[in-house]
């Protein structure tokens, strides 16, 4: 399988602090990669560099055959717009826009707004009925799903998820992981930063950073939906608030897909 991302000897130094040191990484197309490590290990710095939000002090980053080091500020912005979907721990939805409008914002900066396509993206994460709600009217899980719909709306080559379940309860964590599983099955490349081993366990590959260095890089047998989990789908659905009917149906649909 061809590499969507190639990181060659990348280092990043802030002042005298070496945030990343000689990182070598090859991410094949369609791989689900988990990046783990303690605080200050360089996870976020690596995500910023992959997400074209920062540039390395030395080394090369090649995305889909394009050397990011050769690009201008505006070129990096274009790559961010065209090729990367960002999922944040804190969701970062625009507070005065509805769920639908938050998804359309990504379309607006990418190319053309399309309300129907944005609605479909929300339907894909089980939130079609909540499209007209403002972020404050949505639960944390729903906000994260809007964030995912926004990340996917422009069909990015790489999905960068920064602690995607960090602010969610167990039920919503499972929902989000199901969505990521579905995306992975559909062929999306996912790079996910997490400090939680049980979340990282869903990935095919896990790398661990320590003090800016790659401490380990191993293949993982991903946790896919277990038969017991499938059995308990109904009981999990009951855990959801009765008002969150859409989530229930979505959960059932997602479970079936996974």
């Amino acid at each position: 399988m061809s590499a969507i991302l190639e990181i060659q000897n990348v280092s990043k130094i802030y002042g005298g602090v070496k945030a990343l040191q000689n990182i070598q990484l090859l991410v094949p197309q369609g791989q689900w990669l988990a990046v783990m490590g303690p605080s200050g290990s360089g996870k976020t710095t690596l995500m910023n560099i992959i997400g074209c939000l920062d540039t390395p002090t030395s080394g090369r980053v090649i995305m889909d055959g394009l050397d990011l080091g050769s690009l201008s500020h505006s070129g990096l912005t274009a790559i961010r717009r065209e090729s990367i979907g960002l999922i944040f721990q804190e969701f970062h939805l625009i507070s005065y826009l509805t769920a639908l409008e938050n998804v359309m914002v990504a379309q607006y900066y990418h190319s053309l707004v399309d309300e129907n396509e944005a609605l479909e993206a929300l339907a894909g994460v089980g939130l079609k009925e909540r499209a007209k709600h403002l972020p404050r009217q949505l639960s944390g899980g729903e906000q994260q799903r809007v964030c995912i719909a926004r990340a996917l709306i422009n069909h990015p080559k790489v999905i960068l998820a920064d602690e995607p379940t960090g602010n969610l309860d167990e039920t919503n964590e499972r929902l989000v992981m199901f969505i990521l599983h579905r995306l992975h099955k559909q062929g999306s490349t996912i790079i996910m930063v997490t400090h939680a081993p049980d979340v990282a366990a869903h990935a095919e590959r896990i790398i661990v950073l320590e003090h800016g260095r790659l401490a380990s890089d191993r293949e993982n047998n991903p946790v896919v939906s277990q038969p017991s989990e499938q059995k308990s789908a109904d009981s999990r659905a009951e855990e959801l608030n009765q008002n969150q009917k859409s989530e229930e149906s979505f959960l059932a649909g997602t479970m079936a897909a996974v």
């Binding site: 997400g51 505006s74 912005t77 961010r80 717009r81 914002v105 990504a106 900066y109 990418h110």
Partner: peptide
């Protein structure tokens, strides 16, 4: 920051 992260110039 979000808008710029989403690709806004």
């Amino acid at each position: 920051g979000l808008k710029k992260a989403l690709g806004a110039e």
